[in-house]
Design a protein around this nucleic acid. Structure first.
Length: 282
DNA sequence: TGCCAGGCTTCAC
DNA sequence: GTGAAGCATGGC
């Protein structure tokens, strides 16, 4: 893998990259992120922080609208500096994990914004992927900022995920009108807490896995599963192993109700994501 | 119409 | 500590 810059646009091109190494379709559609959409021209369009990011994957390269000054951020967000194939090959996988890996390889674990991930996964409980996307888009379109990006002949319009300040102005009814439903009180509670304790985000970013899980679970509405999702998909504790309904079924049906995740070592979360993708998208 | 979705809190035992 | 009930919403 190497990076070149388009001389005309100053956009980054990722070269010499196969879909087995990094697969945009799988990575952006596997349930770890809710703000990426693929258009009819195979462009993956998402909002990262305050910017619209556009990526299109070809057989051996990926073109982007991401400027050269954002190269480190691109690598960081998509975890492009890790060779997944090499790392996974060091693990002693059982038969089901091997099958899941073969099906899911190419998935990278993203490093998403913490505030956004805490809220999107708070919304995820007892909800479907479709509804989570719906909620996040409604929140962003109504309370975030409009941003526009030119991409060849298209004008792409998106909305930033609302800030704490923007969400602070919302009422109970505002949130109910975004289809947040039974999670509304949890969201209000989180916003009220963060208003006086925003530093906890920095604490979460700097502490270890166990400390992060216990701090996250103090929020009303965050239990084991959501805490592990936040730890995995934002804080990049790739040992985190979220157990949702799909993983529960896998454990019951494939592991007789008892899985030993210690054999997946520091990459248990990545194996979990292969399993989730294999089960939920096969 | 009934069931399900990347669960959590509360309450009874 | 464990288990069941209840919780809003949209797609199928």
């Amino acid at each position: 893998m190497r990076y070149t810059i388009d001389n005309n646009t100053n956009n980054i091109i990722i070269n010499d990259i196969t879909r087995d190494e990094m697969n945009l379709d799988k990575t952006l559609n596997c349930g770890q992120a809710f703000r990426w959409n693929k258009d009819s021209k195979n462009n993956w369009i998402g909002v990262v922080d305050k910017e619209i990011w556009i990526l299109r994957q070809y057989e051996n390269y990926i073109v982007t609208n991401i400027k050269s000054s954002n190269k480190e951020k691109l690598i960081y967000y998509f975890n492009l500096d890790m060779n997944y194939t090499d790392e996974i090959s060091k693990l002693d996988l059982d038969a089901y994990a091997k099958k899941a890996y073969e099906y899911g390889k190419g998935i990278h674990i993203l490093r998403q914004d913490l505030f956004e991930t805490m809220i999107t996964f708070l919304m995820s409980q007892f909800n479907s992927m479709h509804n989570i996307r719906l909620i996040v888009e409604k929140l962003s379109a109504r309370y975030g900022n409009k941003i526009v990006e030119k991409w060849f002949d298209d004008e792409i319009v998106r909305y930033t995920f609302p800030t704490l300040e923007q969400l602070s102005k919302c009422s109970y009814d505002d949130f109910m009108n975004c289809s947040i439903g039974l999670r509304t009180n949890y969201l209000i509670s989180m916003i009220n807490y963060l208003k006086g304790n925003y530093d906890i985000l920095n604490y979460l970013k700097n502490c270890n896995y166990n400390s992060a899980i216990s701090a996250l679970k103090k929020f009303d509405g965050i239990g084991d599963k959501v805490a592990n999702c936040i730890a995995l998909f934002s804080l990049h504790h790739v040992e985190a192993f979220p157990i949702d309904v799909h993983i529960k079924r896998i454990i019951n049906e494939e592991y007789s109700g008892n899985i030993d995740i210690s054999r997946y070592g520091q990459y248990a979360g990545i194996i979990q994501q292969y399993m989730y993708y294999y089960r939920a998208f096969k």
